[in-house]
Design a binder for these strands. Structure first.
Lengths: 267, 267
DNA sequence: TCGAGAATCACTCGGTTAATCACAAAACAG
DNA sequence: CTGTTTTGTGATTAACCGAGTGATTCTCGA
C-alpha cells in the first residue's frame, strides 16, 4: 500500500499550514498511533526524541493534541474532524482580523489616475476565478465568456452567471459539445456556442506551450484572458480595463470578425 | 488617528498567513496606495526598493496583486474582498488535502488500551469549543454544562445543545441572571440554573490567577473542565474519560452535594 | 538507594530571510 | 545625440531561525 505518500503529503500540507517539520511529523505520527509516548513517536516519525516534547507543546497550544501528564507522558491527537475544524477556525479568525485591519486603513490618497491604457497581469487559479466572478457580477449590458477547460466551470461561476441582472446578455462559449451541454443546463439564460477559436486547444498550441483558459469580455469595455501552462497547470491572466484599452479593442475586433459570434447591439 | 496599529496588525496577520515580512509590508502598502511603483512602495513601507520586485512577484503568484508591465512597473493590490476570498480558498484547499491524506492513513495499530484513569490536557479556545460540542453531540443520557463566561455561549454551542437526542437531559448553569436568560431563550429544552459554584468567578480567584471557563459532564462518565488565564485570555482544559476516572468521580461527588444541582436519576 | 529511562536544557550547524551593494538597461532632459 | 537619472536584476553579506545533538536534571521502579 502507498500509505507512505499520504504521510508525506499530510506532513507537507501541515507545514504549509504553518507548522514546523517536527510538529507536522509528530502530528501525523499521533494521528496513526492514536496515543503514544515520546519514544514511540520518535521511532515512528524520525523526530529526535528530545525534540518531540517541544513539538508536542506547540501542537497542544494550537489545540491539535492532548497531553496526559503522567510519566512517561502520553500524547494523542485530537480526532481528525476536530483538528480540521480547529484549523479552519484559526484561519477564519485570521482572515477576519486581516479584513478588519485593512478596512480601517484602506482610506488613502487618491493620487492621479494614470493613463487609461492599462493592462494588468495576475496569476493563480483562485484569484483569477474570483476576479472573473466579480466582473461578471458587475456587468450591466453584456457578458461574453469562453471557457477553455472543463474544470473552470465551477459552481461559483455558475452562480455568478445566473446572478446577473435582467438586461444583461449572456454569451457563453465552450470548446466541446459536452461542455456546451453542461453550460446550457446549468445556465438556462445563456446563449451558448462552440468557440470558433480553435487556437484555444492545447493540441494546437503554437511555439509557446500555453492554452487559453478563459476569455471574458464585460460590457465590451473590460477584458480578461487567461492561459494555462500545461506543465505546471498554473493559470495566469491579463486583465484590461477601459473602453479605449488596446486589449479591449482587439477583443472587439475579434468579435466583429465573427470569431466570438456576438450579435450586433440593436438600434 | 491610530491607523498605524492597524497597519502593523495587518502585516502581522499576513505573516501568520504565511507571507514573509517584505511581502506583507508590500501588500498593505499597496492596499492603501491602490496603485504604485516600486519607489513609492519602498518609501512607504520601508522595504528596500530593490527587494520590492521579488516580494511583488511572490504576491502576484499568490493572486494577491496585479502587475502592469510598463516602465516603471505599476503594482496594485487586488480588492480586499477578492484577496480574502482567495486566501480563504487557498486554506480550504489545504485543509481538504490534509483531511484526505490523513483519512487514507488513520488505519493504525490498535495497541493496548492503557489504564482507564486518563486525564488529558488541551488548550486553545477553538479546540476546546470543538471538543465541547462534539461531546455534547455524543451524549445519550445527560448533559451538565456550566458556563463561566458569556463569550463562551456561541451559536455553535447552542446548535449542539439543541441537537441532542430526545432522551437526553439538558442541565445548563450560568453565573449571572442575564446569561441564564440568554440560555433559556436559546435552548428552550434545557433546565437552567444559577451555578452554586461561586469559585467560578474570577473575582473570587484564589492564589492561582485562573477562572473556570466551562464545566461539562456527559452521561456522568466524561468530564471537561476549562480555565481561562485572565492575563492572556488563553483557555486550557483538562478532559477525563471513563466512569471510574478520578476527575469524574470528583464531579459526581460535587453533584451529590448539590453543587451542580442535578436531579437524581429516577427509579 | 541506585540505576535506567524520561524530560528538560543548552549548544552547534545549516539554510533561509532580511538588508546592502554593484551593475545593466531604460527613460528623460537638454 | 549624449549625459544623467531612474528603474530593474543579480550578487553578496549579515542576522536569524529551525533542525539536529549532547549534557543535565528529574522520575520511577527495583
Amino acid at each position: 500500500m502507498d500509505t507512505n505518500a499520504n504521510l508525506e503529503e499530510a506532513i507537507e500540507v501541515l507545514q504549509q499550514l504553518g507548522l514546523k517539520e517536527y510538529e507536522a511529523r509528530c502530528f501525523v505520527g499521533l494521528s496513526r498511533l492514536h496515543t503514544g509516548t515520546a519514544k514511540q513517536l520518535s521511532e515512528m516519525t524520525e523526530v529526535p526524541r528530545t525534540r518531540v516534547y517541544d513539538a508536542i507543546r506547540v501542537l497542544e497550544a494550537q489545540g491539535l493534541v492532548e497531553i496526559q501528564h503522567s510519566s512517561p507522558q502520553q500524547f494523542r491527537a485530537v480526532p481528525l474532524e476536530e483538528a480540521t475544524e480547529t484549523l479552519r477556525d484559526q484561519y477564519e479568525a485570521r482572515v477576519e482580523r486581516l479584513r478588519d485591519a485593512l478596512e480601517m486603513v484602506e482610506i488613502v490618497d487618491p493620487d492621479d489616475e494614470g493613463p487609461v491604457q492599462q493592462v494588468w497581469a495576475m496569476s493563480g487559479r483562485d484569484a483569477i476565478e474570483n476576479r472573473t466572478n466579480d466582473l461578471i457580477g458587475e456587468a450591466t449590458d453584456e457578458v461574453v465568456l469562453v471557457i477553455g477547460d472543463d474544470s473552470l466551470l465551477t459552481p461559483e461561476l455558475v452562480d455568478a452567471l445566473n446572478g446577473v441582472g435582467n438586461g444583461v446578455d449572456l454569451l457563453v462559449g465552450a470548446l466541446t459539445d459536452s461542455l456546451q451541454d453542461e453550460i446550457e443546463t446549468a445556465v438556462p439564460d445563456a446563449t451558448t456556442f462552440i468557440s470558433g477559436l480553435e487556437w484555444l486547444h492545447g493540441e494546437n498550441a503554437t511555439v509557446d506551450d500555453t492554452a487559453i483558459g478563459r476569455l471574458l469580455l464585460i460590457d465590451r469595455s473590460t477584458i480578461l484572458v487567461s492561459s494555462i501552462i500545461p506543465d505546471t497547470k498554473k493559470e495566469q491572466a491579463i486583465f484590461g480595463d477601459g473602453f479605449g484599452n488596446g486589449l479591449v479593442v482587439i477583443a472587439r475586433r475579434l468579435m466583429a470578425q465573427g470569431l466570438l459570434l456576438a450579435h450586433d447591439p440593436g438600434p
